[in-house]
Nucleic acid binder design. Structure first.
Lengths: 351, 351
DNA sequence: CTTATATATACTCATTCTGAGTATAATTAG
DNA sequence: CTAATTATACTCAGAATGAGTATATATAAG
């Protein structure tokens, strides 16, 4: 085990990378999220191409210029600021995708390749019209993810039957019990079939399952074999598709945010300076796509020291006025700053 | 809010990115982890340069060739396999770093830029010598992270005094109480000063804190202003440095793995097919750098249905023979597959 | 063979955390 | 004034958690 032998291979590999055939362009994609009127909204820019994907939303994206920006995040903030005038609060890197064939190819010049880095950004609700961009309820892209009014009908009416067909199609191809079970298990775990509970954090897994089952328009666009068969059968679109792999990035953002909200106080990035506990709850429920138990939610938020009273009351319609609270920034300097560990309320979520 | 206006800016930006000045090379870095003899080991390749960083370990890395590999992960698996003959089990993307100035620059040709994507990979312990590579106990790079024998002396003897100086240095520069408090709070939360508990998952935050305080040799290499002053003062090295930003990637891997082990059954990727519960515990403790309560650990692992008995006994030295268990793969198909939610044992951890 | 020592494993117990209610207070709509 | 509506406080059983104690089964020493 001498030091020398490894060096040539590793180093020369790195040097070989310098050549143009391995050069890629970094695309920075931002899933910019806000919540207003109990709906999580995602910032989209319109996209029109003659290739059949016209009208599909795209996430705002821009290239990373390494000469201009020291880090990827700085690069992202810079062009988002420039293009949207939004001030981003929380920003988090999600994932870097390098897949060939997961976005329409016309953007790639021959011999060049785009690697896309996805970011999640949160911003406080704000109604100004952004030039050319729009806020879209993210459940338009993921209608199966919103369980606030009970199980979304699209699951039993469309998704489960189509997936069952996909499961049995594999059964024909590979008749061994084991690998058929795999597809069935994936379906069960993702969509909560056969008594498995719904897991709000599996948004990405569900998207990927639907994609690989060929049930999404993106899969058809990418020419996935499964998808072609279904296109012929006139399967209705499952949610609004998005350009490139942007719906996948959005799914990643949803999963990450739904997980993060439970152990870090990120929900407050979406709230105004003062808010009632019920407003906070509505925001959280919007993101999770679930209802939570109101009294326990209060207890949790107050016991964790996440908020403090302002003394002011909210002039609301309806019943008794609610007190307004503010985020206790100090928690960030106390213990590892907790989030909103909450369990879905059985009473309404599973109706 | 028409659709048109945004299109030119977004699209043309993407097209502009095609030009060579924005092209970058993707470097794939692998933090390949195993555990043997109660020590977490990281695979390193030697690196010798005449620039003063000779002898620093490097993580194995290779370029991503988009023409050859469909996804980043496939590219990574491919050259790791090629270079090390290791079979990777679990692989997870960690983070994509684009920072200029966080690695010695000689690798970058003028006008070109390396963006590095870090990966965490787990592999079962295996003693064969790998050509040119070596397994290194990861605590050699992070001596402050191993609390299994009580608080590591380096914290009180070196780190805390140096950080205090760094805190007070800011107090001079910006005398306002608020921003001085920021440095102090960072120190407190990271290193568990003033009654704050040690958080094993903050490995990355601690590394970044030490780096930005200029206490690491990498900071000196990168010419960080803080670091220069300290080099003069003959500060002893805090842990073994690594080439480029590889120690940061390793810190990211540690943080991610320490977090993940608590909610996903990844520890079993590091275990042989059959193992005793104490062996499993030792592995987990090695990764966390903490002791856990033995009886409660057993209860947790068994109640969660993570293991099943094999009936065979372990022929061990010492006391009563222990039963061997195996991982219950079925948990993956049951509920969202839990991990090893464990609390550090107060009795020995804080000695 | 007996005893000390070491480890494995089972069982206990107080405390806290959770999930799910009930009870009561303060508003507005009629 | 009453019903409806929302806010907030309080209760309670069961599960999970942290920390032991008790007992079983081996090896090593004498």
């Amino acid at each position: 085990m001498t030091a020398k032998p490894a060096k040539p291979s590793v180093q020369s590999a790195a040097e070989a990378a310098m050549r143009a055939d391995k050069a890629v362009v970094i695309g920075l994609n931002a899933a910019i999220v806000t919540v207003s009127e109990s709906a999580p909204k995602i910032l989209v820019v319109p996209h029109d191409e003659a290739d059949g994907t016209g009208g599909w939303d795209a996430l705002p994206f821009g290239p990373f210029n390494p000469l201009q920006h020291r880090t990827l995040e700085i690069g992202l903030r810079s062009w988002v600021q420039e293009q949207t005038q939004l001030e981003l609060g929380y920003v988090e890197q999600l994932y870097t995708f390098g897949d060939r064939g997961r976005h329409s190819l016309e953007i790639e010049a021959p011999g060049e390749h785009v690697v896309s880095v996805g970011y999640l950004a949160l911003t406080r609700s704000h109604d100004e019209t952004l030039k050319g961009a729009a806020w879209r309820d993210w459940y338009q892209h993921f209608p199966w993810e919103d369980w606030r009014d009970g199980k979304p009908p699209i699951i039993e009416q469309a998704i489960v039957p189509l997936l069952r067909e996909w499961v049995s199609r594999q059964a024909e191809a590979t008749p061994d019990e084991l690998s058929r079970g795999k597809r069935r298990d994936r379906m069960r775990l993702c969509f909560g079939v056969d008594g498995v509970d719904w897991d709000d954090e599996k948004a990405l897994e569900r998207y990927e399952l639907l994609y690989s089952a060929g049930l999404l328009q993106e899969a058809a666009r990418d020419g996935r074999p499964n998808a072609l068969a279904l296109t012929e059968k006139n399967v209705p679109p499952l949610g609004r598709p998005m350009q490139f792999d942007h719906r996948r990035i959005l799914a990643t953002a949803m999963s990450r945010l739904r997980a993060k909200i439970k152990y870090r106080p990120v929900a407050f990035e979406l709230m105004p300076p003062a808010f009632t506990l019920y407003e906070l709850q509505k925001t959280v429920e919007a993101l999770l796509g679930l209802h939570v138990h109101k009294q326990n939610f209060r207890r949790l938020v107050e016991n964790a020291g996440l908020v403090e009273r302002t003394g002011r009351m909210s002039t609301r319609t309806g019943g008794r006025p609610a007190e307004q609270f503010r985020f206790r920034r100090e928690v960030l300097n106390e213990r590892p700053a907790p989030g909103l560990k909450l369990a879905p309320s059985r009473s309404r979520a599973n109706s």
